[in-house]
Design a protein around this nucleic acid. Structure first.
Length: 122
DNA sequence: ATTGTGACATACG
DNA sequence: CCGTATGCCACAA
């Protein structure tokens, strides 16, 4: 299924994986690019942010719940407005201070520890 | 095929 | 803490 309503071409499977995991992030929780990359065995966290960037258009992906390893809202500049990411998090009860998640360690939700392992190859 | 580009992460000084 | 360097890998041109 297409992720981008404006793009009718078949969606890259790579993106789909990232979106799917991102959608699993519980309300009020957050995760990191690295954690997602690790879960998907991508080997590179760059792919995650990059895929997430593309997702923005049509997919209902809570990209605001994904931050870098420091708990910073590094992707905020890619939202419609620079403050949107923080606002969304606050709406979920996540405290943000100076573009950084408070209680980051406690709110961190690691896919690899909460989702079933992926079948490699099949 | 080659090059450039990242919403990252880690290591080093 | 900060800046630099390097690894990482899918994708667009």
């Amino acid at each position: 299924m297409p992720v981008n309503p404006f793009d009718q071409k078949a969606p890259p499977s790579f993106y789909d994986s990232v979106f799917e995991v991102t959608r699993q992030i519980p309300f009020g929780r957050i995760t990191t690019y690295g954690a997602i990359a690790d879960y998907l065995a991508l080997g590179s966290a760059r792919m995650v942010g990059w895929a997430l960037n593309k997702s923005f258009y049509g997919a209902q992906v809570p990209a605001h719940r994904v931050v870098n390893r420091k708990g910073e809202l590094s992707g905020r500049v890619h939202f419609p407005t620079p403050t949107m990411m923080e606002e969304l998090l606050i709406q979920e009860g996540v405290e943000v201070e100076n573009n950084q998640i408070k209680h980051f360690r406690e709110l961190l939700w690691i896919p690899a520890e909460n989702l079933p392992p992926i079948d490699p190859g099949k």
